[in-house]
Design a binder for these strands. Structure first.
Lengths: 208, 208
DNA sequence: TCGTTTACAATGCGATCGCATCGTAATAGC
DNA sequence: GCTATTACGATGCGATCGCATTGTAAACGA
């Protein structure tokens, strides 16, 4: 009944594997990701990976869920740290920056998201995991835009729902553009700022 | 030297295969697409598929290039047919509608594009094929927005480059949303119209 | 008619996949 | 020390992959 032979940080091991997976996905896409590859990248035997994840799908699901958790926590920490003016506009900008794959590290995260999207097309359980965070982000966008309207920064005629969709579109597509090197991170950021400046007044907190 | 034994419409055969590939991609994602599957979907033997495409990659490349050609021709035909007012706004709307995966048929095309994007990450030749049409579309968007500015419909302070990027982002992301069923085609179209109405004056040709 | 070229089918090969199985070392409770 | 449980390695299996090879039927030029 009582079972604690050999203590190993299970969560840490799984995290190690998830990060190896992310690294691999960043460089080779999801097609090139096999259990053997992940194991090699993580410096483990394949049996060990199997020990922590019963199936490949379980590993993949863990990785995405972990990813969205990390994003959420990072954003929350940043907001609570108060290191930026807490105007709706500044918060929106912070979210965009957090989401966009601006460096090599987040590039892997982004690509894993895309790879997941592909998989989610035909697999409902993946679709659920993928869709999880999106509506919340939509809602948050809308709330912030409404706050902007109440503060008089955003035009009253703007529709928060549509504007949220546009913001999400901007993040989504700019991410793709960066990953595909159609546009540089600087260009994409510039477009984001341009849009935020037009949506909000050009005043206050456009620079983070 | 002269060689014309047995006449078979080579182009038509390749098109058949490409469409079988598209159909498969729509239902199973690109992961589930093998030469055998495509052959079965097309009602051919695998050897026949190999006869028309020396490698799998050649088949995939043909399919995307064909896809972008079809889009281009459809759009050109639509514009030349003069079935819509040729204002910049109306043209932009037509392009958006052409691009978005509003029905099951175009859904497959869209998914193939996404699948290609994944592949393009690690394969330069795929990246080239993928990137081909994008800059042209960007440029076209910018031209149309400039025309709108000259006609006095679009605010002079708007930046055509940034606005083009936003329009592209809108198309890109709304397509993803439709495919993932986060939003309905109607919702997405509504957002597109909302944005175009705000970019241009709300007047003239908002209904196609 | 004969030879060449093409259209298409069938099959086989090596590689790789996810996963199951088995073996071993180490640590816990008893 | 004995046993149970876990951590981890190694290997094998069946399926599937892309691709190469081979065989056959048909249509052309000569």
């Amino acid at each position: 009944m009582v079972k604690v032979p050999k203590q190993v940080d299970h969560a840490a091991r799984r995290a190690e594997i998830a990060e190896a997976l992310t690294r691999l996905t960043a460089t080779r896409g999801l097609e090139g990701v096999s259990l053997r590859h992940v194991a090699a990248e993580a410096g483990m035997s394949m049996g060990l990976v199997q020990h922590y994840f019963k199936t490949k799908d379980e590993m993949l699901l863990f990785a995405v869920e972990r990813r969205s958790q990390v994003y959420e926590e990072r954003l929350k920490a940043r907001l609570e740290a108060g290191e930026l003016p807490s105007t709706p506009k500044a918060i929106l900008r912070a979210i965009m920056i957090e989401i966009l794959p601006l460096d090599e590290r987040t590039r892997g995260d982004w690509l894993m998201g895309v790879a997941f999207f592909i998989r989610a097309i035909s697999d409902p359980s993946f679709a659920a995991a993928y869709s999880e965070g999106v509506p919340q982000l939509f809602a948050l966008f809308a709330v912030l835009i409404r706050q902007g309207q109440e503060a008089g920064d955003v035009d009253k005629s703007a529709d928060p729902e549509h504007e949220s969709a546009i913001l999400w579109a901007l993040a989504d597509s700019q991410g793709t553009n960066i990953v595909m090197k159609h546009r540089t991170p600087a260009e994409c950021l510039s477009t984001v700022d341009y849009h935020l400046d037009r949506l909000f007044g050009a005043g206050s907190a456009s620079a983070g």
